[in-house]
């Protein structure tokens, strides 16, 4: 899982900006979305991301997995990441 060629990520005070410079579309995510993006940038795969978030936050691990999967599906659907 990695960012597509023309995707750029930048942290701002209000969240993380995801800029698909090819389509010139901009997206924003909240803090946790930003953390996931950072982990993707570091080359982590999905199981790593599940585990790292589960360690960082209290909550049901299955729910975390579901949420992360939904988020990464959104990223894929918008050509932000590819596998």
């Amino acid at each position: 899982m990695k960012f597509t060629d023309h995707t750029k990520i930048r942290k701002e005070k209000f969240g993380t900006v995801v800029f698909d410079t090819l389509t010139e579309k901009i997206f924003i995510t909240d803090r946790i979305g930003g953390e996931i993006l950072q982990l993707i940038e570091q080359g982590k795969d999905l199981p790593d991301i599940f585990n790292m978030l589960a360690d960082s936050y209290d909550g049901d691990k299955q729910m975390i997995e579901k949420d992360v999967l939904e988020f990464t599906e959104q990223l894929k659907a918008n050509n932000i990441i590819c596998v």
């Binding site: 209000f14 010139e24 924003i28 996931i36 978030l53 949420d67 988020f71 959104q74 918008n78």
Partner: peptide, 27 residues
């Protein structure tokens, strides 16, 4: 960290449409 809260929303900038302005609110 429900997915709905991680709004992956189009932010700018194709033109003056109301939907876009609503998304832009706060940023």
């Amino acid at each position: 960290i429900v997915a709905e809260d991680k709004t992956l929303s189009r932010l700018t900038n194709p033109g003056p449409d109301d939907e876009l302005k609503a998304i832009l609110k706060g940023t």
